[in-house]
Amino acid sequence: MDKKIVIPGDFLSDDVKNATDGTYVEDGKVFAAVYGLASLKNQIRVVPLSGKYIPKRGDMVIATVSEVTFSNWITDIRSPYDGLLHISEFPKRIENDDMAKHINVGESVMALIKDVDPIMKVELTLNDRRLRRIDEGRIIQVAPSKVPRLIGRNGSMITLLKNNTNCNVFVGQNGRIWITGKERDMDFAEKIIFKIENESHVSGLTERINRFIKEEKGESAREPEYEQEPEIEEEDIETDKTVEKTEDIPVEEETQEEDAPEGILDELLGDGK
């Protein structure tokens, strides 16, 4: 893997055309703009090792309502900018007076970022059958920069997590994670997620997590209802591919298509009767 740690100002390449995120161009040369991991093949990019969540169009996030105004829900999306959810973006037609009945202050929703304008006005939407209000399970938070690791290549890590904990797990791009399942299973899922977050930069992650899951299961004498899926030829570290994909397609869809026959979203929708 041609990846290495770079700091701001490090020279990366002369190939100005392929410079993308995390880089800047000066005097016909490409330099790193952030402290992170640089990858030079195909596109030149630097994936930051830390940083705040910056909203991007097409991201799926978990938003928490902080204020209900005349026609907007103002939500916290864990970024420097508020997310605005307009009444017209609610799946069905509702009256202004009833807004708080549908989503009140303190409640959370899965939302899609519909648009981000140049002054960072963030518009959210619920107009998608996959999106809904969160009224069960729990929400935990990880650093947004760890989200790609948590999802894994083509959603492999998340599949591993779901299959071993009997929980539904939805990872928002803003680092909020929604888990639903039995209390004990959720505790277990939470434990694994925090382990992934803490050790995401150490080599052989998937393997270690696999081992961790086995050990934990053995200790608690929990009979595995799901057979463990063998992880084939897996990269423990998110690759350019994953990152590229997450940009335009919400990760969950990706999982749905490639890994799990019954994707999380269907499950989520299914159990919400």
């Binding site: 100002g9 995390g22 800047y24 330099f31 992170g36 830390s50 940083g51 920069s145």
Partner: peptide, 11 residues
């Protein structure tokens, strides 16, 4: 600043 992941031209 670099540790915070803030984009900069250089240190």
């Amino acid at each position: 600043l670099a540790d915070a992941g803030i984009p900069m031209k250089s240190l």
